[in-house]
């Protein structure tokens, strides 16, 4: 009798008794990261596992630029980044692949070397069987351009530039010198996976 009364009271006025609320803190369904192939109209590349990927904006696409940005771990207060970019003929940023190479293989005073910078020569090479221009740089960059403290980090970069139909394709690796070699294999593998359409 006691049990019956207790059961009746507990059941009174409580609708949806059959609903089982999800327990808060229960694990959301975890999805294993699937191998991702990041694609744009003009190129596709395989994204390295564990790297955050960001596609270019609609504004860039409208400006005839297609971009994939990969963000790796930080080191020495600076990011490690890899870019794959296609610049179409209508883009307003670079006049062509020669303009890109000219602006990225020298400092702003037109030098290939200074006390705080070094730009390697532009070389013709191949990447996955395709002809490309390759060059690199090593520059002391400031962490805060407005601060008198002048804290800095040495950044090393590597570029592959490929003239293609309708524009040019760029692969760009940006890393603090202390971890440049560590993530260079990631950049090489990523670069080798890229296909330009």
């Amino acid at each position: 009798m006691t049990r019956l009364l207790t059961a009746l009271f507990l059941l009174c006025g409580c609708a949806n008794a059959g609903d089982q609320p999800p327990s808060p803190g229960g694990k959301a369904s975890a999805k294993a990261p699937a191998p991702v192939s990041a694609a744009a109209d003009r190129f596709s590349c395989r994204r390295p596992a564990g790297w955050e990927a960001k596609n270019g904006t609609e504004r860039e696409r409208a400006a005839d630029i297609q971009k994939l940005e990969l963000l790796g771990p930080r080191a020495d207060k600076a990011p490690v980044m890899i870019y794959a970019s296609f610049y179409g003929q209508a883009n307003q940023v670079f006049a062509g692949y020669e303009d890109f190479i000219e602006r990225n293989s020298k400092n702003i005073l037109g030098e290939t070397e200074s006390e705080t910078e070094k730009f390697g020569p532009v070389k013709k090479t191949t990447l996955s069987g395709r002809k490309v221009f390759a060059f690199d740089s090593e520059i002391k960059e400031y962490l805060d351009p407005e601060s008198k403290a002048g804290d800095s980090v040495v950044i090393k970069e590597k570029f592959y530039v490929e003239p293609v139909k309708g524009g040019f394709f760029v692969l760009h690796y940006y890393a603090p010198a202390s971890v440049y070699k560590k993530y260079l294999p990631v950049f090489r593998e990523f670069s080798a996976s890229c296909r330009v359409r």
Binding site: E69, I139, P145, K148
Partner: peptide
């Protein structure tokens, strides 16, 4: 340092104005 910082900033912008904003976010003003 003031002069060198002005040159380096202009250089980074000149190398690629399109990528400049992301560098401002990720390095200069993280």
């Amino acid at each position: 340092t003031y002069a060198d910082q002005r040159l380096k900033l202009a250089q980074r912008f000149n190398r690629n104005p399109d990528d400049f904003g992301e560098l401002v976010r990720r390095q200069y003003y993280y």
